[in-house]
Design a protein around this nucleic acid. Structure first.
Lengths: 124, 124
DNA sequence: CTGCATCCTTGTCGATACTG
DNA sequence: CAGTATCGACAAGGATGCAG
């Protein structure tokens, strides 16, 4: 009931959370689930991501074996990113979370307002 | 406006991901699922978290309505954190992710080694 | 025991410019 | 088109000390 279910620094949950914790990574994974996409298509699909971040995260996802990069030597080059079977299983595991977000965001926002209002009242 | 399946900055998925992206928050949520816990118990259960971070994240979780804080006016004061029904549903949504982590961490690590080895070979 | 305030180091990330 | 390189601003996060 206590120390038994502690979370050591190297437990799988924490290692994966470090990656899923990257919001960009998850968004990319979800987008690629539908079909392979090109660099600039992803860039435009994800509002606010910089080209540096996109490049970085794509590389990281490829390293983890979650997506695959395929360059075709046209001029100029075109590069397609696609999800791997492993990546697809992760995306599926993220689905419940996305569903939860859509169903409960409003309630979370309400709780925040309540909390803030109460704190403000106490300050006064 | 954006493409049909783009992720705008204010979509629920991104807002929740910003919170779940906090690895500490998720760990705390999972720990509290079992039973209410005190501050220092949590601190010890989560290897490597600083007291500052713990304090910060707990407050944030409370604000979001995901956990509840209850102080009993003993001397010295003792504080218990417990999960709310809303928080419990989020924890449940995170479960598939934790399962995925445990089942697939090894494969991810393998992919990383493969990737690194290949890059090293190309550098040479 | 449970925190908040302060300082300070470190890393993160956007902006910009340039290459194949 | 698809990146890499560099710089600088900014914020996250650890350490410490103090308070309720």
């Amino acid at each position: 009931m206590k120390a038994a279910n502690a979370y050591s620094a190297d437990c799988p949950t924490r290692q994966i959370l470090d990656r899923v914790g990257d919001k960009w990574a998850v968004l990319i994974l979800l987008l690629l689930r539908g079909e392979p996409l090109r660099f600039n298509v992803l860039r435009r699909a994800i509002e606010g991501i910089s080209q540096k971040m996109l490049s970085q995260v794509l590389k990281s996802l490829e390293r983890d074996g979650l997506i695959r990069r395929r360059a075709t030597p046209t001029v100029p080059v075109t590069v397609e990113y696609s999800i791997t079977p492993l990546g697809a299983t992760l995306a599926a595991a993220v689905d419940p979370l996305r569903d939860w977000a859509e169903r409960n965001l409003k309630e979370v926002l309400t709780a925040q307002r309540r909390y803030d209002a109460q704190r403000k009242a106490m300050a006064a």
